[in-house]
Simulated scan of single mutants.
Amino acid sequence: MTFELKQIDINMMRLFFGLNPKIIQKQKIDLWHRQNLNHDFANVAVDNFHITLSFLGLVDAKTYDNLVLTIDRVQVGTLLAIEPVKLTLDNLGFWKRPKILYLGVKDCPQQVYDLANFCHRVAIQNSIALNNRQYVPHLTLCRKAKYLPPFNKSIDIELSFDSFCLYQSISTEQGVKYKVLNQWPLLPIENLR
């Protein structure tokens, strides 16, 4: 019996589009988490807090360049008329299958869905195969969660975003790190005229 070694292409990057909360907002989320939840799950690093818009998976360097070029062209052509986004994290959720504990948004602004759809379309235009799961805006707090822990205090964490990002997910000995590779502004409609 012979075994074939699988070649790993070091030029492949694990990418996703997302919204990056400001540092003070990340700290507020972390403070609420530490003060209100008691569990022994694997916490997501505060620096990694984000709201995913579209997960792309493994992408080669050429496709990465094309993704950036596609969005740059749209931005220059002012076709992306999505204003800065404000939303409120106001509920705690648990997904049993991926074992994720997350903060969710009950009343999510349409701009977030529009931006997620835009990112999805850009990925498809660049021949990236995506899953067709329904988009659920959320911020992951913990991985390897086993249950929804009890909590007493209400959740009301306002976030605002004036840009969206293309992230790279990098595995390190200390765990996964999310690095912002590119960032594009969300412009008020009046600035596009």
Results as ranks from 00 to 15, higher is better:
residue 36 N to T: 07
residue 178 Y to E: 12
residue 123 A to W: 00
residue 81 A to Y: 07
residue 38 N to F: 11
residue 44 V to F: 06
residue 60 D to I: 01
residue 11 N to K: 12
residue 137 P to T: 00
residue 46 V to D: 04
residue 62 K to G: 00
residue 138 H to S: 00
residue 91 N to G: 08
residue 70 T to G: 04
residue 178 Y to M: 09
residue 156 D to W: 00
residue 52 T to E: 03
residue 45 A to H: 12
residue 131 N to V: 01
residue 3 F to V: 13
residue 38 N to C: 11
residue 62 K to H: 02
residue 40 D to K: 11
residue 192 L to G: 07
residue 90 D to Y: 12
residue 168 Q to F: 12
residue 30 D to W: 13
residue 109 P to G: 01
residue 131 N to T: 04
residue 101 L to D: 11
residue 149 P to S: 04
residue 169 S to I: 13
residue 72 D to C: 10
residue 51 I to W: 02
residue 31 L to S: 15
residue 136 V to L: 03
residue 85 V to P: 10
residue 58 L to P: 02
residue 59 V to I: 08
residue 14 R to A: 06
residue 167 Y to F: 15
residue 60 D to R: 04
residue 125 Q to W: 02
residue 141 L to V: 04
residue 91 N to Q: 15
residue 157 I to E: 01
residue 134 Q to D: 02
residue 14 R to S: 07
residue 64 Y to R: 04
residue 38 N to R: 15
residue 158 E to R: 03
residue 114 D to S: 14
residue 79 L to T: 14
residue 161 F to Q: 04
residue 130 L to G: 00
residue 192 L to Q: 08
residue 17 F to P: 07
residue 42 A to H: 09
residue 169 S to P: 12
residue 68 V to P: 05
residue 121 R to S: 05
residue 27 Q to K: 14
residue 3 F to T: 14
residue 149 P to E: 05
residue 6 K to V: 15
residue 52 T to A: 05
residue 91 N to A: 05
residue 32 W to G: 11
residue 105 V to F: 02
residue 58 L to N: 11
residue 59 V to N: 02
residue 114 D to F: 12
residue 184 W to Q: 15
residue 97 R to Y: 06
residue 105 V to E: 02
residue 19 L to R: 09
residue 126 N to G: 00
residue 47 D to W: 12
residue 176 V to Y: 06
residue 47 D to Y: 14
residue 108 C to V: 08
residue 190 E to P: 10
residue 189 I to F: 10
residue 43 N to E: 13
residue 64 Y to P: 00
residue 62 K to C: 01
residue 132 N to C: 01
residue 118 F to C: 04
residue 176 V to D: 07
residue 97 R to L: 06
residue 189 I to W: 08
residue 81 A to P: 09
residue 92 L to A: 06
residue 88 T to H: 07
residue 89 L to Q: 13
residue 81 A to E: 15
residue 4 E to F: 13
residue 119 C to K: 04
residue 16 F to I: 11
residue 78 T to I: 11
residue 37 L to H: 14
residue 166 L to M: 12
residue 182 N to L: 10
residue 159 L to Q: 05
residue 174 Q to C: 07
residue 102 Y to N: 09
residue 144 K to P: 06
residue 189 I to T: 13
residue 95 W to S: 06
residue 163 S to V: 03
residue 132 N to R: 03
residue 116 A to L: 07
residue 121 R to W: 02
residue 142 C to L: 03
residue 177 K to M: 12
residue 9 D to E: 06
residue 104 G to H: 01
residue 181 L to K: 13
residue 170 I to N: 13
residue 100 I to F: 10
residue 17 F to G: 08
residue 129 A to T: 08
residue 46 V to R: 08
residue 74 V to G: 14
residue 85 V to W: 08
residue 135 Y to S: 00
residue 80 L to E: 11
residue 117 N to R: 09
residue 138 H to Q: 00
residue 157 I to S: 03
residue 188 P to N: 13
residue 5 L to F: 12
residue 113 Y to C: 04
residue 28 K to T: 15
residue 75 Q to D: 11
residue 95 W to Y: 11
residue 180 V to Q: 09
residue 3 F to E: 14
residue 175 G to P: 10
residue 4 E to S: 13
residue 129 A to R: 08
residue 119 C to F: 07
residue 185 P to Y: 12
residue 175 G to F: 09
residue 190 E to V: 08
residue 3 F to I: 12
residue 122 V to C: 08
residue 128 I to G: 03
residue 106 K to A: 02
residue 23 I to P: 08
residue 99 K to G: 09
residue 106 K to I: 01
residue 63 T to N: 01
